[in-house]
Simulated scan of single mutants.
Amino acid sequence: MSLRLSTVILPYLRWHEGGRSAWTRAEQLGFHTGYTYDHLSWRTFRDGPWFGAIPTLTAAATATERLRLGTLVTSPNFRHPVNLAKELISLDDISGGRITLGIGAGGTGFDATALGQDPWTPRERADRFAEFVPLLDRLLTEDSVSYEGDFYSAHEARNIPGCVQRPRLPFAVAATGPRGLKLTARHGQAWVTTGDPKLFENGTPEQSVGALRGQIEKLTDACVALGRDVHTVDKVLLTGFTPDRGRPLESLDAFVDFAGRHQELGFTEIVIHWPIPDSDFAADQKVFERIAMEAPAQLR
């Protein structure tokens, strides 16, 4: 199977001052999917412009025709399944069935306290995620849903006519722990990882490859336990968070080498960040565009 190449466009640009052109250019360059982060604010971008993911993707859907679109990732930190399902069904309709929902358990960043709550512990995040994903699955596939859980509820929540994509839009589940991988195996059409965060500062690329191999083995075990073939789950690597950092975007050859090593592990999609000057995602735009246009042919 050929390796798909996608990009993630951070929502920090005003739509009419570079935002729209990035999405249309991503389509022109042939990327498989254009993702964006679903945060209220994020890291070093907190004190600058930052726009909402769903409105941004809605605008991108009207500005493009073929490019798949998605979040990477949405989390329960400030979302409720009932509201989110309605927005996703609308977005899937507007895009003509081009939406993928990247979804994860969330973290301890600014989103975790923006609504005035204390940050959830890892256990609390996992507990909420384990309830959030199945409920969202139901809301996107059933006309009417009633549910009472420990964290979320729905009372005759209507979602007619449902998604354009059937039975619903695909889930790309970000997970590395056993509970998250079980959710991936049960509900996910794809699995997302950024690698092992413990290796980012002092690890080596070789150690990172080994850690990713271990994650895929655990995903395989989770699928086997549920009687599912792991090959039916797409495997997505969001780059920029492994010890390689930005080196794969330094040249076409460097990227092809990086992507090829991860393709051998079983990854089916590599996601690279749209270059942002003076940030952790700085890269030469010309090199980036050459990678987009030429690398997929070399990775078939």
Results as ranks from 00 to 15, higher is better:
residue 87 E to Y: 01
residue 64 T to Q: 12
residue 68 R to M: 13
residue 79 R to K: 13
residue 68 R to Q: 14
residue 63 A to K: 08
residue 59 A to R: 10
residue 83 N to A: 14
residue 59 A to V: 12
residue 75 S to H: 10
residue 80 H to N: 15
residue 64 T to H: 13
residue 84 L to T: 01
residue 85 A to N: 02
residue 60 A to E: 01
residue 79 R to I: 02
residue 84 L to D: 01
residue 78 F to K: 07
residue 68 R to D: 13
residue 62 T to D: 12
residue 88 L to C: 03
residue 83 N to L: 15
residue 82 V to L: 05
residue 81 P to K: 01
residue 75 S to P: 09
residue 64 T to A: 12
residue 74 T to H: 02
residue 62 T to R: 15
residue 76 P to F: 05
residue 84 L to I: 07
residue 75 S to I: 08
residue 57 L to G: 04
residue 70 G to Q: 01
residue 82 V to Q: 04
residue 64 T to N: 13
residue 67 L to W: 06
residue 58 T to F: 06
residue 76 P to L: 08
residue 71 T to L: 03
residue 65 E to S: 15
residue 73 V to S: 05
residue 72 L to T: 06
residue 85 A to I: 01
residue 57 L to K: 04
residue 77 N to W: 08
residue 70 G to H: 04
residue 68 R to P: 09
residue 68 R to C: 11
residue 66 R to Y: 09
residue 69 L to K: 06
residue 88 L to N: 00
residue 73 V to I: 14
residue 85 A to Q: 01
residue 79 R to W: 03
residue 68 R to F: 12
residue 87 E to W: 02
residue 85 A to P: 00
residue 58 T to S: 08
residue 83 N to W: 14
residue 87 E to L: 04
residue 75 S to V: 09
residue 72 L to P: 05
residue 85 A to T: 01
residue 86 K to V: 06
residue 79 R to N: 09
residue 58 T to R: 04
residue 81 P to T: 02
residue 79 R to H: 11
residue 72 L to Q: 06
residue 65 E to Q: 15
residue 62 T to V: 15
residue 60 A to S: 03
residue 80 H to V: 14
residue 81 P to G: 00
residue 66 R to N: 13
residue 65 E to C: 10
residue 63 A to V: 10
residue 63 A to E: 12
residue 84 L to V: 06
residue 66 R to H: 13
residue 78 F to N: 08
residue 87 E to S: 04
residue 75 S to T: 15
residue 85 A to V: 00
residue 71 T to W: 02
residue 72 L to S: 07
residue 76 P to H: 07
residue 66 R to S: 11
residue 58 T to L: 07
residue 66 R to P: 07
residue 87 E to A: 04
residue 58 T to I: 06
residue 79 R to F: 04
residue 64 T to G: 12
residue 62 T to N: 14
residue 73 V to E: 05
residue 58 T to P: 04
residue 83 N to V: 13
residue 69 L to W: 06
residue 67 L to Q: 06
residue 67 L to G: 03
residue 69 L to Y: 08
residue 71 T to F: 03
residue 86 K to H: 13
residue 82 V to K: 03
residue 80 H to A: 13
residue 60 A to W: 00
residue 80 H to T: 14
residue 65 E to T: 15
residue 66 R to T: 12
residue 85 A to W: 00
residue 81 P to C: 03
residue 64 T to P: 10
residue 75 S to G: 12
residue 85 A to D: 00
residue 79 R to A: 05
residue 74 T to M: 04
residue 81 P to V: 00
residue 76 P to V: 07
residue 71 T to A: 05
residue 71 T to M: 04
residue 59 A to N: 12
residue 80 H to I: 12
residue 73 V to T: 09
residue 62 T to W: 13
residue 63 A to T: 11
residue 70 G to P: 01
residue 58 T to V: 07
residue 79 R to Q: 09
residue 57 L to P: 01
residue 79 R to C: 05
residue 66 R to V: 09
residue 66 R to I: 09
residue 87 E to Q: 07
residue 78 F to A: 09
residue 87 E to V: 01
residue 68 R to G: 11
residue 69 L to C: 11
